[in-house]
Design a protein around this nucleic acid. Structure first.
Lengths: 334, 334
DNA sequence: CTGAAAGCGCTTACAG
DNA sequence: CTGAAAGCGCTTACAG
């Protein structure tokens, strides 16, 4: 146990023979400092092992060097990838990342957003469960930069980074149509979320355009709901399924196995999202991959532009998904 | 845009007709307050929509309500599970979680630990890349509660939550021995880490006890290293492999497929860790699962005991892994 | 280019 | 049970 009391900037300044203001300016790279003074301060700080108290700086600046990430669940590989990429780029810019799992629970989301207000975070990247939550506007009122991720938030002042949802399911469906499928089911997300609605719309458009009747089973973006929805579709004798996210793809695979069917011989499968296990399944899964890293980097970039006052107008960036053709689909003979 | 300037506690107190001290005591549940006063304050706070500035409280208390989680990579499902469980229990106790990915890079770990010191976090849960880093002692000097997770830290004042590593690989190896395997390989973690060493030791003990020569290929706890190590073992004609973590199990499966071999007909496989995809592979993977949630909950519990001053003596908790028997092993005829 | 001083908004020991 | 006041350790407008 070292008993040295923690050094304050004033004490350090005194020992070096300058003022606290000068130490602050050197350490933060703000304001003009003579090169000789700068070197002297740096040497002194290093020698004394001084570490500024970030808590005081935060209060003074009225801002924590923190970015809040509000997502439904970090155990979803889609969000794990996203969080990882955000952390990487935020870290390099001097920001730390606070993790907020909402489990798609509006109450938990609101509580967490309140915390982010109270903590005066610099920015927030939000995959909203409730896009209209008033706390989002409260954040923006407080000068916090807000970016909607995956789904936009209602407050028009926020930025957004979105996947081309309806295009993705349209492509998936058209692929199945193209290889001869006539009864194509869709495992949807929960009603009312923008992502779920858009993905379902893309599927329905493509099915209708091909003269097929849409067959939709309601899921919840989770394993269990995917399983139940897939069971329902299997009962209706579909020959192919489009699944609206990766967790429900797990559920769908479980349902297929439980029914004693084989992919793709008995059932063709395309899923949105491209989790790491997509090529480990039997057979490897054909998917539409979101460019998660690029999207996360874009989100941080938008945030920083705001924080640096480089931009006032809200921006909305849409990213195409990438078709990853593997082995879970096969031709359906008429 | 609401133009109301942010309310301070003093303004709120004045409007309610009490002192800031009383408002603080009511909101924090500290000190004695007459019930009537309490109600009046609560009503006023609610009506005014007052939200305390946490930054000021942090400075005053010399502590942020933050728990730092230092891990190698959130994209590893083992850590995603751990972070999720930590966040859940920390959240309920009023703490937020700051995510620190080190990529097993000692320099990045030290930088991040320095940040945690500067931010005066309340606690840190660390899966150390470098167990001896002096910043860990610095944290403890500052009164931060530190828990080693997966691996212990060197500073004896810290707590630790550990898996029974050598026991796990011993059980895995004994299982393969029991079903007749004579050439059992081991895909190890990187040299020098405690986890890797202990897991290798368990394997070697069991192999030696069965009269078999250990066959170890060096991995790195990542997909790529697992693949290379598995390639090496396949070249040596092993009939079974024990893999020291889940990422290397992916690499091992890739190597096996690339070699045109089948599990378990050509090669039996047991892996440490039980990721969500373990039952999606072909065949479903036999694993030894760490009770990650229980471990994470225990880590937060240890942290809180420290923060509440309930305990001085460091504690070390060891958790047994659970054998999950699936379909990736089969009998080897002598 | 540098310093003295105010002030960020809380919490808490102290006094009553 | 309640209040007045000090003080946490920085940053920054202001003065020189």
């Amino acid at each position: 146990m070292s008993d040295e009391p923690t050094l304050t900037m004033i004490q350090v300044a005194r020992r070096i023979g300058v003022s606290a203001a000068t130490v602050s300016r050197v350490l933060n790279g703000t304001g003009p400092v003579r090169e000789a003074t700068r070197k002297k301060v740096l040497a002194g700080v290093d020698e004394l092992g001084y570490r500024p108290n970030q808590l005081a700086a935060n209060l003074r600046r009225q801002q924590a060097q923190l970015i809040g990430i509000v997502i439904s669940d970090i155990e979803n590989p889609h969000f794990a990838q996203m969080v990882r990429a955000v952390e990487d780029s935020a870290y390099m810019k001097g920001y730390r990342v606070v993790l907020c799992n909402t489990d798609e629970d509006p109450a938990k989301q609101r509580e967490y957003l309140g915390v982010l207000v109270a903590e005066r975070v610099a920015g927030a990247i939000i995959s909203p469960t409730e896009a209209t939550a008033p706390e989002i506007s409260e954040l923006i009122d407080h000068g916090v930069a807000v970016v909607g991720f995956d789904r936009a938030v209602t407050d028009q002042r926020a930025d957004a980074v979105l996947p081309a949802n309806s295009q993705a399911t349209r492509i998936a469906t058209e692929h199945l149509v193209g290889i001869g499928h006539k009864k194509i089911g869709f495992v949807s997300g929960p009603v009312g979320t923008e992502t779920a609605t858009a993905r379902q719309a893309g599927y329905e458009e493509a099915a209708t355009a091909a003269g097929l009747a849409p067959i939709v089973a309601l899921g919840d973006f989770r394993v269990e709901g995917g399983r139940r929805a897939a069971d329902e579709l299997l009962g209706q004798g579909v020959s192919a399924v489009v699944v609206a996210n990766n967790l429900m793809a797990i559920g769908t695979l479980q349902a297929i196995r439980a029914a004693g069917l084989r992919v793709p011989a008995d059932l063709s499968l395309v899923a949105i999202d491209d989790p790491p296990w997509a090529e480990l399944t039997d057979p490897p899964l054909t998917t539409l991959a979101q460019p998660v890293r690029a999207m996360a980097n874009a989100a941080v970039e938008l945030l920083l532009q705001r924080l640096q006052g480089k931009r006032k107008r809200p921006k909305r960036l849409v990213f195409d998904l990438v078709f990853r053709h593997r082995s879970s689909c096969c031709l359906k003979e008429g």
